[in-house]
Structure formats: C-alpha cells, structure tokens
Design a protein around this nucleic acid. Structure first.
Lengths: 151, 151
DNA sequence: AATTTAAGTTTTATAATAAGACTATACTGA
DNA sequence: TCAGTATAGTCTTATTATAAAACTTAAATT
C-alpha cells in the first residue's frame, strides 16, 4: 500500500523525516553541501535513477530545502537557508557512521574549521554551560505545540 | 526494482542511512529513547503495521542499535551503546523540524539538562574553542578510509 | 480447559523503485 | 542554417516494498 507519510504527525522529528527521510534525499543534500548543483552531477555521483532524482529534487524544492534557478543553459539547485540548517544533522550522521561502521583503514572524512584548520568539536548534546551530556542526562519537557498526541 | 541499499557506498553518511534511513526506523529509535521497550508499545504508539515493525526491530537488532532480551512473559528491546549514540542525530532532527516546520502554537518538545533543568544548547557545529560555526565556515578533509570514491 | 496477552507471520492489494529508452529544448560549431 | 550535442527531464516496464488485516504460536491467567 501507499507508503505512510509522516507529515500529519504532530511531531517535530516526523516533520523532519517527511522532508529528509525519503531514500536518497540526505545523499542529495550532502552532495549539495559539497557544491554539486546540476541534475547530471547528482545523477552521476550517486548513480540514482533519473526519474527518481527528478522527483526528489522537485520535492526538496517544494519543501524549501533547495532552490532551483536557471543557470546559463542549465538548471541549478542550491541549498536554501532551511537546507543549510540541515548541516548539523548531516555531520552528526556522518560522524556516527564513521565511528560505528568504520572503514578498516580509518576515517573517511574530517570536518574542519575553515578559520584555523582544526577539526570541529564532535556534534553532540551540550549543556547550557558547555559540558557534553550523556544520553541519560537529558530529559524532555512538552511545550504548547504538543497536547497528548505523540511526541 | 529492488530498493538500492546504501551499505556498499564507502561513505559514512550512507552507512548511517543503511541503518536508520529506512522508513519508521528513526521513529522507533525515538520511542526507545522515550522508554518504550515492547512490541505492542511501539506498534500502538506509531500505528505501524505489525509485519513492518517486526522486520524493522529485527534489522535494528542485527545492526546493533537495539538489543533484544526476554522480560517476564514478553520480549524487550533496548538501545545499545551504539543506539544511544544516535541521540544527537535524533535531537538535531527534532530541533530542525521544530524550527522550520513549526507548530502554530509553539514548541512541541524541549530537551532539558536533567542536572539543572535548563534547556540544552542547540545541537550545532562548534569549533574546537566552542564557537558556533556557520555552514560555510566548515570544510572537509579526506582521510585514509577514503580513496577517490564518493565522500 | 478456555481465555487472554504478546509477539510475531502470512496473505493480498497497492504503491514505490530502478533501469533504460525516449523527448524537448537550448546551445555550439561548421 | 542546420546537424550535432548537452541538459534536463518523462515514459514504460518489471520488480520490490509496504500496509492492513487475518492468522498463528506460545506463554500466562482465570
């Protein structure tokens, strides 16, 4: 049957998944972070079927993550502000894969602070005063946008 | 045709997606963070079809994200260390959804430091000395685990 | 022994995906 | 100008994945 969409959950995580949760989307977004902008660049780099890429780019534009513009003789897709804001997610996911599903020869990619060439801090959960928190040191509080539906 | 799996990409992000990228997986993991442990708890809370839940729990156990144990008269699924390490991703995704696809009445969930009741810092990318970095202030360096395949 | 609870599996109809062929449009060089 | 090429798609077909509900199995309860 139809793949259940998460859009109608009143849940911030499900909302996010409705945009980036589809197969390929996060890899397309990563490629956009690495500077790819054109249909065929994405297609060749990922090996994605053209119709699927076409559909995903359309959806990502509609969701406001990418913006389409006309370059000289070709279309261009660039990350919007909303798309750029996905960077912590992208980096956290890359870091988790590097740590828990490592390549035998070592790290694949390191993210660097352009200003000083030093690696960035591990993406993690930090307390207001900057201490790295462990999973069980964190709890949740419900806000006005949530009644007794799902979190 | 067969859904292309990302397992064989030499890419940390694709590796992560091969574990958490499937439909429902991240919501199952979130529910596990919120303390759910049993088949029917997940099933009822998410409204997921039973066969799909069965398959996903099996895969998450196989991937080492959840561990299955026998409780009194029922099975239990708990996050492993590897699963707990997904928390920054989960929180970053929740935060993005809250910011860019907000509920009209306000925040749905806030994450709190258990020690002092204060909200955690925004999950983001920080420099070695603790400054919040903008997307374009970050670059990447390839490591030994990466030849000239994809990032 | 019969009922209930829990955790799945099976079945069936529908929807999504991959692969490659095909199309439309604009640019390029002779 | 006109053939050729690059780019960005769309269309077709076969296959695979999903959802929903009914069914099964096993243990605990009454």
């Amino acid at each position: 049957m139809k793949l259940k969409s998460f859009e109608h959950f009143n849940c911030s995580l499900a909302q996010t998944l409705s945009v980036i949760g589809e197969h390929w989307n996060m890899l397309i977004i990563r490629d956009a972070f690495f500077g790819l902008r054109r249909f065929d660049q994405f297609q060749k780099n990922l090996g994605i079927a053209r119709n699927v890429l076409s559909d995903r780019l359309k959806k990502l534009v509609k969701a406001g993550v990418l913006a389409k513009s006309d370059g000289p003789g070709h279309a261009e897709y660039r990350l919007t502000q909303k798309g750029l804001a996905l960077q912590p997610i992208m980096i956290a996911m890359t870091h988790w894969g590097d740590t828990y599903m490592p390549h035998p020869e070592g790290k694949r990619l390191t993210f660097i602070d352009r200003a000083n060439g030093k690696p960035i801090k591990t993406v993690g959960v930090y307390s207001a005063d900057g201490k790295l928190l462990k999973p069980k040191e964190i709890m949740t509080k419900t806000g006005p946008g949530l009644r007794d539906e799902q979190a």
